[in-house]
Design a protein around this nucleic acid. Structure first.
Length: 319
DNA sequence: GACTATAATAGAA
DNA sequence: ATTCTATTATAGT
């Protein structure tokens, strides 16, 4: 029955209801996944055909800096649905490890949720999901990896293909971070590992809450005089849902970046970050799986509690 | 502008 | 690629 229009309701424009997203019955499955990952709903795939939503804008007006900023890249119409889908359907880890702080070993609880997919250029996944040597296309030696590389699930594969299209680059690796609140962060670092090669291109998507992304030049050698030294000012970019920032060229070799802890406002809500990279050698695969999957338990989003919760397969299979 | 509370930043371990 | 502490910046009154 049609809803009665009150006088007030007549003048107020009808609420633009977002059509309900029809879940796909298809899933990505793999022995290394703790659970199946549903395929991206068709409505989301259709809307993603309009990506990039804007042209990338170059940010290269500082020494050794080469960014391309899509503000946004993901069309507005699907930002929320894509965020909700990925938070709901992906599985995450809260990796623990130890570092030496001065003389003492301290236990670190990575201040964000992480997960990783993909494998370096030396290997690839066959049609049956098994690992093959990239050159020979034959099964890899059993001892090539200590970790268990996971194929990129279809839902992220869609994004990867779009990203390759808009950047002209190729990627074989996908890292996903979930910052549950302003208390989650990543401190200053560069993605300058050897296993990415000398001038790696990294595509980084933001979904959900706005967070500050800050960059600063690495300390310069005190050789040149101030008069010759080009100045590099710290840079702060407020990343919003759907934004994509492409970092390329000399950026990683010369700049540090971080997502600092923040209080109040939107930072208290969840944010997903998805990065695509090209990992060249086996060592990179081992590194990423160690620091983004680790050995601990699985976390999944609990829509009722509105938080990430420890998860075991019994939870979903319990009668 | 001063005073206070809270947030952001920088340095050390 | 973290956390603690000290210092500095910012916002509110």
């Amino acid at each position: 029955m049609a809803k009665k229009r009150t006088l007030h309701g007549f003048f107020k424009p009808a609420e633009a209801k977002r059509p309900k997203i029809e879940a796909s019955k298809e899933t990505s499955l793999h022995p290394t996944y703790p659970c199946p990952v549903p395929h991206l709903p068709l409505a989301i795939i259709d809307a993603l055909a309009f990506a990039p939503a804007t042209e990338g804008k170059a940010i290269d007006d500082q020494p050794d800096l080469d960014l391309l900023y899509f503000q946004p890249h993901i069309p507005k119409a699907v930002q929320k649905d894509l965020f909700n889908f990925l938070r709901q359907e992906l599985f995450f880890y809260r990796v623990q490890y130890t570092i030496k702080r001065g003389p003492v070993d301290t236990q670190v609880y990575t201040p964000r949720f992480t997960t990783v997919f993909g494998v370096d250029e030396t290997s690839c996944f066959g049609a049956d999901g098994s690992l093959l040597d990239s050159k020979t296309q034959l099964p890899i030696p059993k001892d090539r990896y200590q970790c268990k590389p996971r194929p990129v699930p279809e839902c992220l594969e869609v994004l990867r293909n779009i990203t390759e299209g808009t950047t002209g680059e190729t990627f074989n690796s996908c890292l996903v971070n979930y910052y549950a609140s302003g208390n989650d962060s990543i401190s200053y670092h560069s993605d300058d590992e050897q296993f990415l090669g000398p001038n790696p291109t990294i595509a980084s998507f933001s979904l959900g809450a706005k967070r500050d992304f800050v960059l600063k030049h690495k300390p310069m050698p005190p050789l040149m005089t101030d008069s010759v030294k080009p100045e590099a000012k710290p840079l702060k970019i407020q990343l919003a849902s759907g934004d994509m920032i492409l970092m390329r060229g000399p950026t990683q070799a010369n700049w540090l970046h971080s997502i600092p802890k923040r209080k109040g406002g939107e930072s208290e809500k969840g944010r997903i970050n998805i990065t695509f990279r090209k990992v060249l050698v086996k060592g990179g695969t081992e590194n990423y799986y160690r620091y983004n999957v680790g050995a601990g338990g699985v976390f999944r989003w609990d829509g009722t509690k509105q938080k990430m919760d420890p998860w075991t397969s019994e939870i979903s299979t319990a009668v």
